[in-house]
Structure formats: structure tokens, C-alpha cells
């Protein structure tokens, strides 16, 4: 009885120990329809945002979103539309992080997905763009 139980436990233990190695090699699922449509929407919006990143009007935040960095870089008449662009972009980004986490069966990964993206956005940003480093804005 004990021997049998022990061997069952051993097998379970071995499986549990091997599982992380198997999943470590796997890629994250990012090819869901929801993720694709968010990507498309963000790609289209980037055409309008790019100039504002370059002018310093908009910067990349440490939580993987974007924010107004220098409102004076935008003519007063355009400020409202830039604010709307920022809000729309942040809506998509929040949805994207949430969607990636849940598409991989771990909704609780959302914050880690977000912080991974926060680093990669900055890494891939062009020189001259602004980003948040800790509490301060930094020009790349």
C-alpha cells in the first residue's frame, strides 16, 4: 500500500518538476483575433502619434502606456485631439496586455506583461523620444 502510494507520488513529482522546462521553451500565444485587431488599430494610430513622440509632446510611461509630456509642443488647437489619441492608445494598450495574459491562460500575468512591454517600448523607441525612468522623464 505504502510502496504503491510512494511510487505514484514520485511520478507526480517528476511530472511537476519537468513541466516548467517544457513550458519555458514555448512561445506565448499572441495570435488571437483580439490581439490582431488591437495591433492593427495601434499600427494605424501610430501614423498620427509618431510626430508627437518626435516633438516630445508625448512620452512613454513606465507602466507601458503613453502620456502627454510637453503640451507646449502641440498647438493649442490640436491639444484636444492629441489627448484623445493618447486615451485611445492607452485603451488599446491596456486591452492588449490583458488579452495576452488571458490568451495564455494566466490573467494574473497582466502586470508582468505590462512591465515587459514597458521596457521593450523604451528599448525600441527612437532617439529623441521621451520616456519615464522611475519618476522622471528622460530623453532617449
Amino acid at each position: 500500500m505504502m510502496k504503491k502510494l510512494f511510487s505514484i507520488l514520485l511520478i507526480l513529482l517528476a511530472t511537476a518538476l519537468a513541466a516548467p522546462f517544457a513550458s519555458a521553451a514555448a512561445d506565448l500565444e499572441v495570435n488571437t483575433p483580439a490581439i490582431s485587431s488591437l495591433k492593427n488599430s495601434m499600427q494605424t494610430r501610430h501614423g498620427q502619434l509618431a510626430a508627437h513622440y518626435a516633438s516630445g509632446a508625448i512620452g512613454l510611461t513606465k507602466d507601458g502606456l503613453i502620456a502627454m509630456h510637453d503640451a507646449n509642443a502641440v498647438p493649442l488647437a490640436q491639444r484636444q485631439s492629441v489627448n484623445s489619441l493618447i486615451a485611445a492608445e492607452n485603451g488599446d494598450r491596456n486591452a492588449l496586455y490583458k488579452e495576452i495574459a488571458s490568451a495564455n491562460g494566466h490573467p494574473e500575468w497582466q502586470d508582468e506583461v505590462r512591465s515587459t512591454f514597458a521596457q521593450r517600448w523604451v528599448q525600441k523607441a527612437q532617439n529623441g523620444w521621451w520616456y519615464q525612468d522611475g519618476g522622471a522623464w528622460v530623453k532617449k
Binding site: 516548467p20 519555458a24 512561445d27 515587459t116
Partner: peptide
Amino acid sequence: INIYFPAAAAEKAADKIIDEVW
């Protein structure tokens, strides 16, 4: 332990998406 966050895979996925968006 098995439900740890796959940091390397997430970075790869993020890079792919950012390349497309930008």
C-alpha cells in the same frame, strides 16, 4: 513553481508586436 511568468517568451512576444505596431 509551474505557473511562473515566462519572461523570455514575453519579451520575444512584445518585440514582435512592437515591431508590427511601429
